[in-house]
Simulated assay, not measured.
Amino acid sequence: MAYGSALAVLADPTRREVFERLRAGARPVNVIAAGMPVSRPAVSQHLRVLKDAGLVEERSEGVRRMYSVRREGLAELRAWLESFWGDALDAFVLEAERSYKAKRKRKK
């Protein structure tokens, strides 16, 4: 149930903002923290939680650490969310078929 962990981690609005700042690509912590209402060390803590949840990865680039979204970390969350779409479509098909059959029955 990795999607549960991802949901719990992304429930925090500051952490979600940190995560969204990585949408455009890899960033160092000072760039991520720029303009945020929390300190750079706090952003580092949020990045650590995101990394532990498998949503973010880091790599060294010289003396800097670059953080980026770990796309594989989103795969299970995405699959879980998409399962709702599949369920909704299945329910729609069933209702459309039921409605069609009822309409045909009334015409007879």
Results as ranks from 00 to 15, higher is better:
81 L>A: 14
19 F>S: 06
72 E>F: 03
45 Q>V: 02
52 D>V: 00
60 S>P: 07
22 L>W: 07
87 D>F: 01
12 D>M: 02
70 R>W: 11
20 E>N: 12
50 L>A: 04
2 A>R: 14
36 M>F: 01
62 G>K: 04
44 S>L: 12
97 E>A: 14
92 F>H: 10
52 D>K: 00
74 L>C: 13
38 V>L: 03
59 R>S: 08
9 V>E: 15
72 E>Y: 02
11 A>L: 07
13 P>I: 06
34 A>I: 03
32 I>M: 08
69 V>F: 00
40 R>Y: 05
20 E>I: 01
93 V>A: 13
89 L>A: 15
78 R>A: 15
85 W>S: 08
17 E>S: 15
18 V>C: 09
100 Y>T: 08
17 E>V: 14
93 V>K: 08
16 R>C: 07
81 L>F: 09
29 V>A: 15
88 A>S: 13
98 R>S: 13
25 G>Q: 08
91 A>W: 03
21 R>Y: 06
28 P>G: 03
56 V>I: 11
94 L>N: 10
77 L>W: 03
73 G>R: 10
67 Y>F: 11
39 S>M: 04
43 V>M: 12
30 N>Q: 08
4 G>D: 15
39 S>V: 05
9 V>N: 04
103 K>P: 00
57 E>R: 10
60 S>G: 02
66 M>G: 12
17 E>H: 06
103 K>T: 06
6 A>I: 07
68 S>T: 13
107 K>M: 06
17 E>K: 11
41 P>W: 06
88 A>H: 12
35 G>Y: 00
69 V>P: 05
97 E>N: 10
74 L>K: 07
18 V>T: 04
8 A>V: 01
58 E>L: 03
64 R>V: 02
51 K>R: 10
19 F>I: 09
53 A>K: 04
8 A>H: 06
53 A>T: 02
63 V>M: 10
92 F>D: 14
34 A>K: 09
14 T>W: 04
29 V>G: 12
104 R>V: 00
95 E>I: 10
11 A>H: 11
48 R>P: 01
56 V>P: 05
72 E>S: 07
71 R>A: 12
64 R>L: 09
33 A>I: 01
5 S>F: 04
72 E>D: 15
94 L>W: 00
48 R>F: 05
56 V>N: 03
103 K>R: 02
11 A>G: 13
74 L>E: 14
95 E>N: 13
90 D>L: 04
25 G>I: 07
14 T>C: 02
3 Y>M: 09
60 S>I: 11
32 I>N: 03
18 V>F: 07
